[in-house]
């Protein structure tokens, strides 16, 4: 299991990486390598050249930009895990990150790498999709951005232009005072990719009414999706209403089927996990009232 031969170059900046990609269509970016390296070892990926962006220091940051948290593409997952800023301001990502691989892979794996590889069950992608993050990238035309709604288009496939280098992701921060989150996932072992997963963020007003609800489901279809359950917003604590809204929202998603889980399993359990994520998010938001 040795990779096929390739050249290696370190990019000095995202723009440099993009220029290097433009030079050679078989070039490929490597950051933490936690997804790419196994593919190289099994020769499922055969780049002519690896463009290493891991050392571009200006791409490694977690910044509070008031209405959003901005995370650089080469920020290691462990930095997100340990960030008090993320814990406080982006609790959904904080909850999700511990489901990403295990400690040694989080030490090397990057936020941008996870988003760029776009595994259908990747937790960071799910949070990005749920919250409607904006992904920033650099290509020959300069700095650009794309919303997650357009970004995820297939299993391990994104709408990122061929010569683009991901620069960062901006996760919206909700302004409501009572925001709760829920993250649910089922997998064979805790470090494995999920068969199916769900992320929810709920905001309640002072009267415990649901002001805003965001729900995302991962692992079900080709990519993580945000599902609209606004129909159940007024009955957010009513299990049947929420389940019904979820079931309706995911009815059109073609479920994946593989060795690990049948399509029926994914479809059925997606509803349960999504419901539980919503329930937990609402519960958490409610508890905040008492804390305040």
């Amino acid at each position: 299991m040795k990779p096929a031969a390739f050249d290696y170059i370190r990019a000095k900046s995202a723009a440099h990486a993009s220029a290097l990609l433009a030079e050679d269509e078989n070039g490929r970016i490597i950051a933490g390598g936690q997804t790419l390296m196994p593919m190289l070892a099994m020769r499922l990926a055969r780049p002519s050249r690896l463009i290493d962006v891991a050392r571009i220091s200006e791409l490694s940051y977690i910044r509070d930009e008031k209405d959003k948290i901005s995370i650089g593409a080469t920020t290691r997952q462990v930095m997100v895990e340990k960030s008090t800023l993320i814990a406080k301001r982006l609790p959904l990502l904080h909850k999700a990150i511990e489901w990403v691989g295990h400690p040694p892979t989080r030490a090397r794996g990057t936020v941008g790498g996870s988003l760029a590889n776009s595994d259908p069950a990747a937790e960071i992608s799910l949070v990005a999709a749920t919250l409607g993050a904006t992904l920033r990238y650099v290509d020959e035309t300069g700095e650009n951005s794309i919303s997650t709604d357009e970004y995820f288009i297939g299993p391990m496939i994104t709408a990122l232009p061929a010569t683009a280098c991901l620069a960062g992701a901006d996760f919206p921060v909700w302004s409501e005072k009572r925001v709760g989150t829920g993250f649910e996932e089922v997998n064979a072992r805790s470090s494995d990719f999920a068969f199916v997963s769900a992320a929810a963020q709920a905001a309640l007003d002072a009267d415990d009414k649901c002001a805003r609800i965001a729900l995302g489901i991962g692992g079900l279809g080709d990519f993580p999706v945000r599902v609209d359950i606004d129909a159940a917003k007024d009955q957010i604590e009513k299990e049947s209403a929420v389940r019904e809204a979820i079931a309706e929202a995911i009815a059109d998603i073609e479920p994946l089927a593989d060795l690990h889980a049948t399509a029926e399993y994914r479809q059925r359990v997606a509803v349960t996990l999504a419901y539980r994520a919503v329930r937990n998010a609402v519960r958490e938001a409610k508890e905040l009232a008492y804390a305040n």
Partner: peptide
């Protein structure tokens, strides 16, 4: 054979 690697043939970790 669908389980050719440790990604698909699942050995128990300390969690399991």
């Amino acid at each position: 054979l669908l389980t050719q690697s440790f990604m698909d043939y699942l050995l128990p970790s300390a969690h399991e």
